[in-house]
Design a protein around this nucleic acid. Structure first.
Lengths: 343, 343
DNA sequence: TTGAAAGCGCTAACAG
DNA sequence: CTGTTAGCGCTTTCAA
């Protein structure tokens, strides 16, 4: 293993000079000759800088930790893309961890990332409240962290989420304008902010339009991380049909549930959108390639990641900034699953 | 920030003793009393160990670096799950990076992970050859790394991949048994091992069954990472129809392409499976929830990750082991997109 | 049973 | 313009 010392010896200078040159410092006016000598020596000896040593000496890692609930997913990774993009332009690397729907893992990863001395944390917290004390402790210690996609009202930190209340309200209002007033809402049995906000938006749209809220129309399916969303949507819809619930539209909290629901409807020989209109949320890429391309509430995932990253970095650089809580506008994408012309 | 020294002072012992206790060493018979004193002091002072310092002192990080082509994907993350599972049981953490279809990023991430002093690397290499010298250098320096999902024949290292040749051959043979002899193969314009192996399997099945290989039936679509696979499959199939290519079955190199192809077929009013049988590879969760549930060649992704992880760790512990090159059996899952009864 | 001390590789004053 | 030096926080041998 070549170290700075080796290069210093090889180039006949001190390690300090080598360090300066290799880090491309501005001020020190080191002669072009020694500079080149050092660079060449480094090249010749196949030098690989040791970040572990550098980080220890500097007392900072220039790394952001990111914790999201799952890997095999089409939503969060896109947010992470945005995070990475913004982070790297500011010179930060990111380290990714998965809480896998398990609050012990969430805690473990927070702990690990702190031990690794990341400069800040981006977290999509689990629906499980159990780590609230942990987050509060971070807050007290003024350790910078930002929530993404969902927030915990009990933890007053920065966050960047979609304005799902508004998005849901828009989607449901659109269904009502199509004349579909008996709207099922397929959601998850969870109390995370996204679920609450969407439900609120759904109710708000009904109320605004003078419609009653019928609890029978709200179907909450299993939201465990390990569960298959498609299957959950499929089974949820099946139960509604078995109960002979009367409805003309379905509003799902995510596109995956909607895919499952569509399958049940098809098996029941119900036509989409002629008999039933269907709307999802997330606007996943696959949604437009379904047999009934899915109308969906699009979220700007890349933007969410970018903003969150930027806010975190600002907080790292200036811990006393005012907390920022951002709700990003969504965008209703119309496709055949609600196409009014085909009714 | 509390350090070992603070705890030592608080507990009235030396840092060496604190280190021993906190690392739960076996041998040193430290008195129960001092042990507890130390543990309590650590607790009281909210001690968080500094891994950066520990790693530097130890000269090893117990971290495996993982590089996969993309995040927003349903294949690789599952492999990563397997990797993580096996790694964590051996006490290793993993750090995940994405090459994003860009060989410069691939190189940059290899470099970064080396600087971070990971103990080994798991890589799904890009189709781009440009980093072969880098991998060869790793090989020369005896730095442990294992390829996953795909391999570079030019780089003689360990790898764990699916036996796609065999899997493809089985799938195509099955189509032939169904009486579908004019089989289109939708694949990618890439020379990565997976693409080559599947094509070979396709050809092998045709030859075994005395059928001619018709280049007109092999359609290679854009494989750029940034491209939308669904769209690529959709457009690829469209071109085949426009050219009036005569076929009765479609064998796609992945399920995403198959979803796009299914959409084109539907728009052309071709019935699946009555007119055209369709087979994909990967067996993604969504495949069974499509309007025409997709027959697919399943790969054991979790197992792939686990095995790769285990092999890497063995190599780290024993660099001189013989290289292992593993081809995992695949599994043909039959669904309606080829259901013979409906023909 | 425990402590002193050297050192992991690099950085950053400060001195010259 | 360049070198000396004192750490960063932790581990680990060796001695007591």
């Amino acid at each position: 293993m070549t170290t700075l010392k080796d290069i210093a010896k090889e180039a006949g200078v001190s390690t300090a000079t080598v360090s300066q040159v290799l880090n491309d410092k501005e001020n020190p006016f080191i002669s072009q000759a020694t500079k080149e000598g050092i660079l060449q020596a480094a090249e010749r000896l196949h030098y690989i800088p040791n970040r572990v040593a550098r980080d220890l000496a500097r007392g900072s890692t220039m790394v952001l930790g990111v914790i999201i609930p799952r890997a095999a997913d089409l939503f969060f990774p896109e947010v992470v893309e945005g995070i990475e993009e913004a982070a790297s332009t500011k010179g930060y690397d990111i380290v990714l961890s998965y809480s896998a729907g398990n609050f012990q893992k969430e805690r473990k990863h927070i702990q690990l990332l702190l031990e690794r001395k990341v400069d800040g944390l981006l977290v999509a917290p689990l629906e499980n409240n159990q780590n609230i004390p942990i987050f509060r402790e971070l807050l007290e210690r003024k350790f910078p962290f930002v929530f993404i996609d969902r927030y915990l009202p009990e933890v007053k930190t920065d966050f960047v989420v979609s304005d799902l209340k508004d998005g849901a309200c828009e989607a449901v209002s659109y269904l009502i304008r199509l004349g579909r007033t008996k709207i099922v809402h397929i959601t998850k049995d969870s109390n995370i902010s996204t679920v609450r906000d969407v439900l609120e938006g759904y109710k708000m749209a009904l109320m605004k339009n003078g419609l009653k809220i019928n609890q029978e129309l709200v179907k909450a399916v299993n939201s465990e991380i390990s569960s298959n969303s498609y299957e959950a949507g499929y089974n949820g819809m099946k139960k509604l049909l078995e109960k002979r619930v009367d409805f003309t539209a379905v509003f799902c909290i995510d596109d995956n549930l909607a895919v499952g629901a569509l399958k049940t409807l098809k098996e029941a020989k119900l036509k989409v959108p002629q008999d039933i209109s269907v709307v999802g949320m997330d606007n996943l890429a696959v949604s437009s390639y379904l047999t009934s391309p899915l109308t969906s509430v699009a979220q700007n995932k890349i933007q969410m990641g970018k903003l969150a990253s930027e806010i975190l970095i600002k907080r790292i650089e200036n811990p006393e900034n005012k907390k920022k809580q951002i709700f990003l506008k969504t965008n209703l994408i119309l496709r055949e699953s609600t196409n009014e012309k085909e009714i």
